[in-house]
Design a protein around this nucleic acid. Structure first.
Lengths: 112, 112
DNA sequence: CAGTATCCGGGCGGATACTG
DNA sequence: CAGTATCCGCCCGGATACTG
């Protein structure tokens, strides 16, 4: 059995498919602080409209975020994490823990 | 303060830089079962020599894997996870948990 | 066996302009 | 405001051939 076929690896593969790309993680990070509008995310991250639109569509299709249209004028659209998406925070937490332990962003590189 | 500058988000960004791409996660998954040779990984994953070479170099540069040359004939090279790399398993575990909860690979998989 | 060297096509992501 | 529509450069990743 090829390792690539292991259930674990397959999950990883699917997760990459969903969250892969340059911006997905960042966007989800954004939404963890609460629902946000299209241009809000855009300005915060400095992502192009096309890219943002693409990623949001993908995330919505995978049940990670919801898209809510507020039909006031001017029209606004709010994106929010689903439970599925918000539950992924567990992974982010582990990532941050790992980052804190092994990555140094500050100047004082004492590497070892 | 832009969300993109949050320490959390920055860690995520760095992690993406290290583990981003199509194969990094899969390779690390591979190595969790123990050290492996170049062509072993290659055959298991079905990745091209160039891609594998590139990714391994990147992972080595980031201190995720070690490269050990066994100078017997024919020469063999073993790749293994460093502590830093192996420590990332925590993240994989969380990913798998998330995957088991939220992803369904339909076919009566009795995973694990 | 473990790579390097090339070449190449596709797709991702950015920039810009435009629409409802 | 929230996108869509284009265009485009770049780089990722694959295929193949070759080397020590």
């Amino acid at each position: 059995m090829r390792n690539a076929d292991h259930p674990c690896a397959r999950f990883i593969r699917q997760i990459i498919d969903i969250f892969g790309g340059k911006w997905s993680f960042a966007i989800i990070c954004e939404l963890h602080t609460g629902p946000k509008r299209f241009n809000e995310i855009r300005n915060d991250l400095g992502i192009s409209t096309k890219s943002l639109s693409d990623v949001l569509k993908n995330l919505e299709a995978n049940g990670i975020v919801t898209r809510t249209v507020h039909s006031a004028a001017p029209i606004t659209v709010e994106y929010a994490l689903t439970e599925k998406g918000s539950d992924f925070e567990e992974v982010f937490i582990k990532m941050s823990e790992w980052g804190m332990k092994w990555l140094h962003q500050s100047s004082s590189e004492e590497m070892r």
